[in-house]
Write a protein that binds this DNA or RNA. Structure first.
Length: 276
DNA sequence: CCAAATCCCTGCGTGC
DNA sequence: TGCACGCAGGGATTTG
């Protein structure tokens, strides 16, 4: 569930709590994630002062001395929280980062689609090598209507799954792809190469707007997602199509009813009345 | 090379 | 009450 706005919300909260703090060791608990948690590598590279908490795509990066870096992904159900050193682990807690001041950063993930991986970055290397194929950040200047047009022109398939391809643009998942297309009034079924330049520009602005707005609201809490302090994000109130199957379209003057269809194995929500 | 399908995983809601 | 089933979906992998 966590897409860019949720991960960015978590990043900001963790940065606030963790920057300058010290990690003295890591403990892996029962249960592998997407790949096994290497306690050995985590203890080698994720130790000492936490010098940065960054985000790229839906990944969080924690910077440590000597280029040490923790790559974390929340998958569908991952979350971080802070506990005191004497807490009793809960079911689905997967890893403990032992901090100073008798605190522990806990990584919790019910469905184990998440990832915790330690690596080292070479001097001057901003991101781990596995990130090279990523598309631009949607809130960065590189993400323009012209760029989107250039990519869409070679896309024969429907535009909605295309927006969720991290090689095209990162951070857009199932919820915000539907929401952005609604705002741009473009049907999710349209072939990418069918979109006019104007529509690409509209779509680019819609993606930016919906993501930026959601960050302001602290992300969308659908089921598991929580901010690190346990509070919910409130963007769910602003969702206009996602999860609204059978309900009437919220666009003024539109009498349409929101449909749910299946695209590339995922639910897509849209209004056939005003998305063309 | 691209796109669609499959798999991973667990909790929850539904229907019988 | 209990159980089978479908669904949720990010991303890696497989298949077409």
């Amino acid at each position: 569930m966590p897409e860019l706005p949720e991960v960015e919300t978590i990043r900001r909260a963790l940065e606030h709590v963790l920057l300058g703090r010290c990690c003295r060791g890591v403990r892996a608990l029962i249960g592998n994630l997407r790949e096994p948690i290497s306690e050995v590598l985590l203890n080698e590279f994720c130790r000492g002062e936490i010098r940065g908490v960054r985000r790229r795509a839906k990944f969080l990066l924690f910077d440590f001395p000597k280029g040490g870096c923790l790559i974390a992904h929340l998958g569908m159900t991952g979350s971080f929280r802070i506990e005191s050193a004497d807490f009793v682990p809960r079911p689905h807690d997967r890893a403990l980062f032992l901090l100073d001041q008798k605190q522990i950063l806990v990584y919790h993930d019910i469905r184990r689609f998440g990832l915790l991986r330690a690596c080292t970055l070479m001097p001057g290397e901003e991101y781990p090598p596995e990130f090279v194929a990523f598309g631009p950040e949607p809130l960065s200047p590189e993400f323009t209507g012209a760029y989107l047009r250039e990519r869409l022109i070679r896309c024969k398939g429907p535009v909605k799954p295309f927006l969720m391809n991290q090689k095209v643009v990162v951070g857009v998942g199932n919820i915000y792809a539907s929401e952005a297309l609604f705002r741009a009034r473009i049907s999710p079924l349209r072939a990418g190469n069918d979109l006019a330049s104007r529509e690409c520009a509209t779509l680019e602005r819609a993606i930016r707007a919906v993501l930026a707005e959601s960050i302001e609201w602290g992300g969308t809490t659908i089921s598991d997602y929580r901010q690190p302090d346990g509070s919910e994000g409130h963007f769910a109130l602003n969702l206009r199509v996602y999860g609204r199957m059978g309900l009437s379209c919220l666009r003024r003057g539109c009498r349409g009813v929101i449909c749910r269809i299946r695209q590339a194995g995922r639910s897509t929500f849209y209004c056939p009345g005003c998305q063309r």
